[in-house]
């Protein structure tokens, strides 16, 4: 009886292992066979933030976190994808739902605004959506001076509108919680207009005051872009002077170096060589540099 019981138990174990291996194997076959049918595009089942707020039955905060993670993942995956036409269409709806579910989700407004305004192909290039998101944040938390600062940034950096930027900074500076440098910043932006100096002041301020490391990192990258643009502004006339002398543009930095126009291959602040187009003579940051692309008119 004992032996019979033992062999039955062993049989059960063997059946368990064999069936489990079979189930996993079948799943693997299914994955291989149906891979081509998996959706390649992101799907957003519920588009209305208000409907979603009702559907989550009081679990708003954790649902907002899930949407936040989705937004960050969606942005990252789209940015890193090799697709020719990158589609960031769901970014704003995802951030809109996140901030409706948790209206005090500070970072979703601030980080979201940066992601939304980022120029194509590194982002959707929709500064107007970024402003709309920040305005929503201001309606929920009217005393958050940081949202006014961010909206001013978007106006200054992406809309090239120093007047609108200064207006945001001034409005923010009137809040009791605002730091004392916000009002002078408005004046500085107005005085400098589109000059690099005002941009440098803005990003330096953010690099020093941002609460989150990724925001400080973004600000540092922007400062490096400003430095890179300043170097390009110096290099371009040198390349043009080569043209004046040779009646053609140089084939590259090696020729410029041999001809004594530059001392060596110029590198951007991340250590990647600037590109020199032999046809148009345009100097730019390389596409594989983390500083690419530079904002037009920087």
């Amino acid at each position: 009886m004992g032996t019979q019981s033992r062999s039955r138990r062993a049989l059960h174990w063997i059946a368990f292992v064999v069936l489990l291996v079979g189930a996993i194997g079948t799943q693997t076959v299914i994955n291989g066979a149906f891979e081509r049918f998996t959706p390649t595009q992101e799907v957003q089942w519920v588009r209305s933030p208000e409907v979603m707020r009702r559907l989550v039955l009081g679990f708003n905060s954790v649902a907002a976190d899930i949407y936040w993670i989705r937004a960050v993942q969606y942005y990252g995956a789209t940015k890193l994808s090799k697709a020719e036409d990158k589609d960031y269409n769901f970014l704003f709806p995802l951030l809109d739902i996140t901030t409706t579910l948790d209206p005090r989700f500070n970072i979703a407004y601030r980080f979201g605004a940066i992601l939304l305004s980022e120029g194509y192909p590194n982002g959707p290039g929709r500064p107007q959506d970024a402003i709309a998101l920040l305005e929503k944040g201001i309606r929920e938390s009217p005393n958050k001076w940081e949202y006014f600062l961010d909206a001013g940034f978007v106006e200054y950096w992406w809309h090239d509108d120093p007047k609108a930027a200064a207006d945001w900074f001034l409005r923010g500076s009137k809040l009791s919680t605002a730091p004392n440098w916000l009002q002078p910043l408005a004046a500085s932006v107005l005085a400098e207009g589109g000059d690099h100096l005002a941009a440098r002041v803005l990003w330096t301020q953010l690099a020093q005051t941002a609460e989150q490391e990724w925001m400080r990192r973004t600000a540092r990258t922007r400062l490096q872009q400003i430095d890179a643009q300043a170097v390009i502004d110096q290099l371009q006339p040198i390349v043009n002077s080569f043209y004046d002398k040779a009646n053609r543009f140089p084939t590259g930095w090696d020729e410029m170096t041999r001809a004594g126009f530059v001392r060596g291959i110029p590198l951007d602040p991340t250590g990647v060589a600037y590109t020199l187009d032999p046809v148009s003579g345009a100097v730019d940051v390389a596409k594989d540099s983390t500083l690419y692309p530079l904002r037009r008119g920087l």
Binding site: S61, V62, D65, W68, V72, I107, F111, W214
Partner: peptide, 22 residues
């Protein structure tokens, strides 16, 4: 979550813990 949330891990752990308890 620390890898996925752009610095929001503490907030999310707080939310998740309270939601799971409830």
């Amino acid at each position: 979550l620390a890898q996925l949330t752009a610095g929001q891990d503490v907030k999310i752990i707080k939310d998740l813990g309270l939601a799971a308890a409830s």
